[in-house]
Design a binder for these strands. Sequence first.
RNA 1: GCGCCAGUAGCUCAGCUGGAUAGAGCAGCGGACUUCUAAUCCGCAGGUCCGGGGUUCGAAUCCCUGCUGGCGUACCA
Length: 572
Amino acid sequence: MVGLGANFSFFTEGTSISMKRKLTAILERTPHECFARNLLDPCDLPPIEVDLPREEAHGDYATNLAMTLAPLQRKKPRDIAEKIVACLDDSECVIERTEIAGPGFINFFIRKDYWPLLLESPDRLKEDYGRSDMGEGKKVQVEFVSANPTGPLHIGHARGAVTGDVIARILEASGYDTRREYYINDAGNQMNLLGTSIYHRYRELFGHREPYPENCYQGKYIIDLAQKIKDKFGDGLLKKDVDEAVSACTDYGAAEIMEGIKDDLAAFGVTFDCFFSEKELYKDNGVERLIAELSEKGFIYQDGDTLWFRTTAFGDEKDRVVVRENGEPTYFAADICYHKNKFDRGFDLVIDIWGADHHGYIPRMYAAIQALGKKPEALKIVLVQLVNLLRDGVPVAMSTRAGEFVTLREVIDEVGKDAARYNFLMRRSNSHLDFDLELAKRQSNENPVYYVQYAHARIASIMRTAKERGYSIPSYRDVNPSLLTLDEERELIKIINRFPDVVEGSARTLEPHRIPFYCNELAAVFHSYYNKHRVIGVEEELSLARLFLVKIIGLVLGNGLKLLGVTAPERM
RNA sequence: GCGCCAGUAGCUCAGCUGGAUAGAGCAGCGGACUUCUAAUCCGCAGGUCCGGGGUUCGAAUCCCUGCUGGCGUACCA
């Protein structure tokens, strides 16, 4: 490390700065230098992109800046590239050499002895490594699950739950002031149906043998709820009139089910800052006042007894009813009101996690928030595709109506929280997912969650052994990082260095699946390294350096798993 | 019919929002445990990126079109 170090601003940075970000910063300055030297004509700059080339021969990083600049400059990309290279301001001497290649790529080769120095940042930042201030403290709300309390959560809710939860975790880590919210749809006629269902079962418990309505909820949990009511109130409800009794059943059942939902979610590692009741919206005529407000703005028109919202004004394919012929507001009316409420609470960005079967609802929601005077960018809707549940490759038939479904609780009990979460998170939320119960609970190499956890446990084991043999676990300042010269070590460092970029990209795109992919890659290179080279038992100074490197790998894996809400075990 | 989402190795999926010779896991075949955890590693094999056009220096990625699958198309939530 001779000649390096003195002028490293790197070490004074408060947040994680990846090499990619550093090069991006250099490249942002460079064209201006070219302008100043009259090498290029002043023009607007395209976004700077720094890529990781697939081929090692193409350097550690590459940019297409010369090619994107070419049409603006009316010059050949390779000529532009030469000028950019001439104006690079690499005050820290991180670039060993550059190369102009292919149609006009600029390839960067980083000084080999620079890489190990990049381990200072994660060692200093620890749990904060990977965090950024990208969100600049903006207030963002993530609303997810939001299942109505008519029954326990089932497997279909699980994917949405974990997706919303992890998006919230990623946004938190990226400097957003994040709130998680569950919207309780407890005002519609589904709730009435719940009460009716419970009431029927309740009467059955007293020997009333009426036929059970087919449209009522069929699950056994309805009978359990009826039994609880019987235990608590005896035959009290039989004496009341039907409406009153049903209403009591609804209230009791919804509250009870909601408690169960909260418990199941907690067991799944999913928590909320706020449970927002739909009923809240109807207080003080909130929904009516909203419709009046939209009416004043000219977005509402009447047709017979029905009130329509002119969502076509914002590109929806047809207008939508907000007040039915019978005078009842629609679910949509309440949902507009709810979103207004969200923005009134000061959120800069509102994120809705929806099941993909609601995708037809998107245009009208965007119409609604625009009618409320919000920009479309203020709302982001993440669609989570439906889960195809399998057991040993055979589809599991499910029917909510018939009460035949695999509950979230059963999945947690059977396959475990970590395996379930990881399996849901491995795939882009926007693509269909096969979830095989047998595969997910199998503790084998077919199950990717253990691959990453195993790497973490393995590292913990190395640390334990090292301590037993008299080493103290070193920090950056305790080691000579220049001893980490192996190709594998450089590769590990590069991956470690990429972590902040991965988290940022994940936050920007609202794509949690990038984190498990990253963790998998880091674990893979580590496992390979472990099998090929020894950490403990080589020359002492080298052992210390490797011990340090491995410690940092464990740290990053731990940070990654934490973002996923998956346990990072010390032993397996 | 119309709309949305998908179609990439035998299977399940990535592919960094247009970059250089398309990747991973599993399954298959052949190897590695007296060593810091073999839930691991090493090697081999595996491709018409659904088909067809187009856009440009350059397409799995963008546009058009056809095919296939899922979902949606309510005064349900």
